[in-house]
Design a protein around this nucleic acid. Sequence first.
RNA 1: UCCCCAGUAGCUCAGUUGGUCAGAGCAUCCGACUGUUAAUCGGAGGGUCGUAGGUUCAAGUCCUACCUGGGGAGCCA
Length: 465
Amino acid sequence: MPIAASGRGPAVWRAPRAGRFGGSLRSRRSIAFSPMTPRISELGAHVGQRVTVRGWVTHVRSSGKIAFAVLRDGTGIAQAVFVKSQVPGEVWERFGTLTLETSVSVTGEVRAEPRAPGGYELGVAALEVIGASPTDYPIQPKEHGIDFLLDHRHLWLRSARQRAIAAVRSELEQAVHDFFYERGFLRVDTPILTAAIGERSGLFSTEYFEEGTAYLAQTGQLYGEAAAAAFGKIYTFGPTFRAEKSKTRRHLTEFWMIEPEVAWYDSNDNMRLQEDFVSFLVARVLERRQAELKELERDVSKLETVKAPFPRINYTDAVAILQGKGSAVQWGDDLGAEDEALLVEGYDRPVFVTNYPKEAKAFYMKENPDDPRTVLCDDCLAPEGYGEIIGGSQREDDYDRIVQRIKDEGLPMDAYGWYLDLRKYGTFTHSGFGLGLERTVAWICGLQHIREVIAFPRMMYRLRP
RNA sequence: UCCCCAGUAGCUCAGUUGGUCAGAGCAUCCGACUGUUAAUCGGAGGGUCGUAGGUUCAAGUCCUACCUGGGGAGCCA
């Protein structure tokens, strides 16, 4: 028999919600032994009823003959009230053993109670301890240092703030799929193990049978281009890896990227897609995750103005603007983080910086016919100093020109054989971009550090937990 | 790779020109309290001051090296 019937855990732990699987042997048994077992977020529908809530203790307070335990189950928090004169002596005794993060099953009557965190409370009749928790639980309801928190990331995730961030991230991931699905894009999953191909910055490597060295993908773009020629409108959504020795609040060694690639889109179409996309994402979070934004104390007025179209500044103008503001930047330099922040000052929505010098950008970007020193590309800079969330470009579609660029960059021609085929067999105008999920979530949540935005961040000096 | 900053109790930190400098709050344990909201009140336990050298009558404090972490630059999303 499967695990569920093996008696490995308490029967109540496995009990499905009453009526959910009506008719089966299993459910009849669980109905007999346990009342309804709603999640905390569902308690409002059970006022006046006796229910059982399973969760973890986040707070214990006692005033002699009345005591409170706040429970968390991931969907919300609820307060369990123990009155000494109204519960069996053994339940009162057991309350005394509750510590932070003890997992429990509490049965009692649901009451609406404005004084209770979460708005509802349970007048306790029965309490079962499922998993004890020693008194040295490291994370307290107080401030901690970032080093300590990252060492205890597996437990830190249990906090209300981390749940709010995870919920916004999950909402954004769903919104990404909805956006592209509604517009007829196919999702294409590109390889994570690759031969040497992609961009110039650091690569993680691993042994790969007789093929020698494999590298963890830094981008799915080149594969995305092949898929665009096959399927027209595609996007990828996957992890990417950069072995850059970057120690800043904007960098991870493993992060998630969304990369659309569209046949017959030029650079202008590409930017329109980007501004529609970013506006859609922000609107979705504002629409469905107000509670989480409030938990994060996000100033939503800064998000409500994020609507397409976004201002566009071409690189050459940007340099002049920056020089006017006192920057030492020279034409030909890439823009630094400080320059980016200076440039978006005063805008209430993201800003595109377009057509950078060829030398500052990757080999696959198409030369700008109006100014051959530059390429048809754009960076999308988030407001409030959050910096680059998107890098996009129209791709070079001329076979001879791209061969020349590969040579100029000193890249290994043999690694790009299949990529060149895309220009050899029916070349096509196409464009795409990459949106960094973590930077986008950090911006929308208003967080200082990108590392809080992913459950288990991978950074230069952090591989565990 | 480079620049800056920090390591003192389980956690967050204070610690003066080198001389009662081994401290506080929270957490933990014991006690009180029938509506608490990071409860409150009383009491208790808890530290090789990151490591190794050095200067000095005396080092948590000054010097050197190293270790660990953080922020930033570069590079990028």
